[in-house]
Computed example of a mutant assay.
Amino acid sequence: MTELGDEDVNDGAAPRVLILVLDPRSHKRSFKRVDGLARHFLDEEGANVDVVTAEPRGWDLLDERARLHMLDKAEARHPLPWLERTVVSRVPRLLVRPLKPLGPVGRFLDRAQTRVSGIVHKRVFLRFYRHVRPLLLMRIVRRCVDRDIDMAEVRRVIVIDYTSVPFAWRLARRYPDLTVTTRQERTLQP
């Protein structure tokens, strides 16, 4: 029983907060903001904190008590980025490699191939991938959350960036009693 006389749905277990920050590089202060939220919920609210991200670097400041779920390797293994790397970089590099010993012509072709591959990657693929990535990450996060996080213990889901919104929307539909918000309020109350 709680102070208000309601039944405690978690049987006395510590509540869990899920912070979704799939693309923290989209906002300059995301890392500090997530660390501040995690520390508050760990220290003040006594909650367990899970941080889900697709960015492997920049988490040195995060409190070690918070569980960090990294999705960067799963994203790299997905067929879409793998196919782009293969078609745009690897195959052309394999075609140009035998021509390298030809001297200046071989070096010129090698530099041209590298430059063209970079341009296609930046100007074509990344523009397309920017729109597809939230949906791709949504599928990857769903598998991670189903496997690693007990959603019955989660009391609040905080969405930090726009890339996390599709998955948060899906969580809100799947668990209607769960508080899913983009507001970074430091409370467990709905």
Rank of each mutant, 00 (worst) to 15 (best):
T179M: 07
C144F: 09
D50R: 07
P92H: 08
F31S: 02
A54F: 03
A14L: 09
A172Q: 13
P104H: 08
I140S: 04
K100L: 15
R25P: 00
I149S: 03
A74N: 03
H121E: 14
V157E: 01
E84L: 00
F128N: 04
H78Q: 08
W59Y: 02
D110M: 05
E44K: 04
P104G: 08
E185T: 12
E75Y: 09
R77V: 03
R127H: 07
K28H: 00
G106E: 15
T187Q: 05
D177A: 15
L42A: 10
P81E: 07
I158P: 01
E7Q: 11
E185S: 09
S26P: 00
P24N: 06
H121N: 10
R139W: 12
R127P: 00
R174K: 15
R143H: 14
A13D: 10
L42F: 10
L18P: 01
V34R: 02
F167I: 07
V34T: 07
L109Y: 14
R65D: 15
P81V: 08
F108H: 13
T163P: 04
S89Y: 12
R111K: 11
V124I: 13
R25K: 02
M70L: 08
H27C: 00
R97P: 06
R67K: 05
L71Y: 03
R90G: 08
F41R: 02
R123P: 00
K122Q: 10
V124D: 04
Y162C: 03
E64C: 01
V165G: 07
L20M: 08
R139T: 12
R139N: 14
I119T: 13
D63W: 02
R130G: 03
V91P: 07
R93C: 11
F31M: 05
R142L: 06
L99A: 14
E45F: 02
I19D: 00
V17Q: 01
D177Y: 14
D177C: 14
W82Q: 06
D23K: 01
L22W: 02
D35F: 05
T182D: 07
D11N: 15
R16Q: 07
R77M: 10
E64N: 04
V52P: 01
R130E: 09
K32F: 01
V132Q: 12
R85I: 05
T114W: 09
K73V: 05
R39K: 11
V141F: 05
R85D: 10
L42W: 06
F125M: 05
L22R: 02
P176S: 13
A112V: 15
R39C: 12
R130P: 00
T182P: 01
D148A: 13
G36C: 06
